[in-house]
Amino acid sequence: MTGPLSGALIGLEVTRTVRNKKFMFFSVIYPSVIYLLISGTRNTTDTVPGTDLTMQAFFMVSMASFGALTAVLMGNSERIAKEREKGWVRQLRLTTLPGSGYVLAKIASAAIVTLPCIVVVFVVAASAKHVTFDAWQWAALTGTIWAGSLVFAALGVAIGYLATGDAVRPITMIIYFGLSILGGLWMPTATFPQWLQNISVWLPTHAYAAVGQSIGMGGAPEARDIALLCGYFLLFAGGAARLYRKDTLKA
């Protein structure tokens, strides 16, 4: 479905992202700094209400997820909006590249950046805050947080088509912080009022955080959370592909 043209686009996107030193530094270092600031106010024995997961481990999983979300959502939305204004996307539409190929190329290239974000947070948590897990948990957390970031990479593509170059940043920031806070990446949702908890459980970030927390507690992710993430991915990716095909912005 993607073909050689999509493969070439993925390579181009990865190269452009890696060469953007400011974006790479912000995406990789920022989540670890936030983790140290937040976790510094907690001791190693505090646990998340209603669970046996320590707050240090909770914030490690949350900030790794937050970092992955930062890399794929912020990067994709702003870059695509600018590409539309410059006419680059219009040129791509003149090729044989299908809408699905363009969207998947953007998602894949963005997701590659998330791995160092996740690993750096894990290394900082393990070395500075002595967070410990079994080997299978470390591997499972890395894989699930990375895979879950694809949902938000697709959302970033969709936002890039819905917003203009001037409006994309404030719109993305509102969605970015809204989903992060309400979804439980900054604090356990168990501390929310009940009415807010009822809303939170339907957000993709809540399911994203819950998957990592389940693994951190030594269990398997809930089927409901996996289903929600898959549903949101199909919604965002399908919407982004549709917007790509309908975009008529001139160079």
Score class of each variant (00 low, 15 high):
residue 198 N to G: 09
residue 31 P to G: 02
residue 208 Y to M: 08
residue 137 Q to P: 01
residue 192 F to Q: 03
residue 227 A to P: 13
residue 21 K to E: 00
residue 74 M to L: 15
residue 60 M to F: 10
residue 91 Q to E: 15
residue 47 T to W: 02
residue 232 Y to R: 08
residue 20 N to I: 03
residue 65 S to T: 15
residue 130 H to T: 11
residue 212 G to F: 05
residue 173 M to H: 12
residue 11 G to W: 14
residue 230 C to Q: 09
residue 58 F to W: 08
residue 251 A to R: 12
residue 140 A to R: 05
residue 85 E to W: 04
residue 149 S to H: 11
residue 169 R to L: 15
residue 37 L to Q: 00
residue 33 V to C: 00
residue 224 R to A: 15
residue 49 P to G: 10
residue 223 A to R: 13
residue 165 G to A: 15
residue 167 A to G: 14
residue 91 Q to H: 13
residue 210 A to P: 01
residue 122 F to R: 05
residue 133 F to G: 04
residue 133 F to H: 10
residue 65 S to C: 14
residue 160 G to K: 02
residue 189 T to I: 12
residue 58 F to G: 05
residue 216 G to P: 11
residue 147 A to R: 03
residue 11 G to E: 09
residue 6 S to Y: 05
residue 116 P to I: 06
residue 129 K to C: 06
residue 169 R to D: 13
residue 58 F to Q: 09
residue 156 G to T: 01
residue 240 A to W: 03
residue 140 A to T: 10
residue 201 V to E: 04
residue 100 S to I: 12
residue 15 T to F: 13
residue 46 D to N: 14
residue 7 G to V: 02
residue 250 K to N: 12
residue 236 F to P: 06
residue 144 T to N: 05
residue 218 G to T: 11
residue 54 T to A: 01
residue 134 D to A: 15
residue 82 K to A: 15
residue 237 A to N: 08
residue 75 G to H: 10
residue 235 L to F: 13
residue 247 D to R: 03
residue 222 E to V: 13
residue 236 F to I: 08
residue 21 K to H: 09
residue 80 I to M: 07
residue 193 P to T: 07
residue 79 R to C: 03
residue 49 P to A: 14
residue 223 A to I: 13
residue 211 V to S: 11
residue 150 L to C: 11
residue 126 A to V: 00
residue 240 A to E: 05
residue 209 A to P: 04
residue 105 A to L: 06
residue 10 I to R: 01
residue 97 L to E: 08
residue 19 R to W: 03
residue 144 T to V: 15
residue 156 G to L: 01
residue 248 T to V: 04
residue 159 I to R: 00
residue 185 L to E: 01
residue 158 A to F: 10
residue 199 I to W: 07
residue 22 K to H: 07
residue 213 Q to E: 15
residue 236 F to L: 08
residue 33 V to H: 00
residue 66 F to R: 03
residue 14 V to H: 09
residue 207 A to E: 09
residue 204 P to Y: 08
residue 75 G to M: 04
residue 67 G to I: 05
residue 28 V to M: 00
residue 50 G to E: 06
residue 60 M to P: 11
residue 173 M to D: 12
residue 57 A to K: 10
residue 119 V to Y: 02
residue 32 S to I: 01
residue 92 L to D: 02
residue 2 T to E: 07
residue 194 Q to P: 00
residue 204 P to T: 05
residue 134 D to C: 00
residue 49 P to E: 12
residue 123 V to Q: 04
residue 177 F to N: 09
residue 205 T to S: 06
residue 25 F to C: 00
residue 164 T to V: 05
residue 179 L to H: 06
residue 117 C to H: 00
residue 146 W to I: 10
residue 34 I to H: 00
residue 61 V to Q: 02
residue 23 F to R: 10
residue 112 I to A: 15
residue 23 F to Q: 09
residue 35 Y to C: 00
residue 157 V to Q: 06
residue 248 T to W: 00
residue 193 P to I: 05
residue 162 L to E: 01
residue 72 V to W: 07
residue 147 A to T: 12
residue 7 G to L: 14
residue 128 A to D: 05
residue 187 M to V: 12
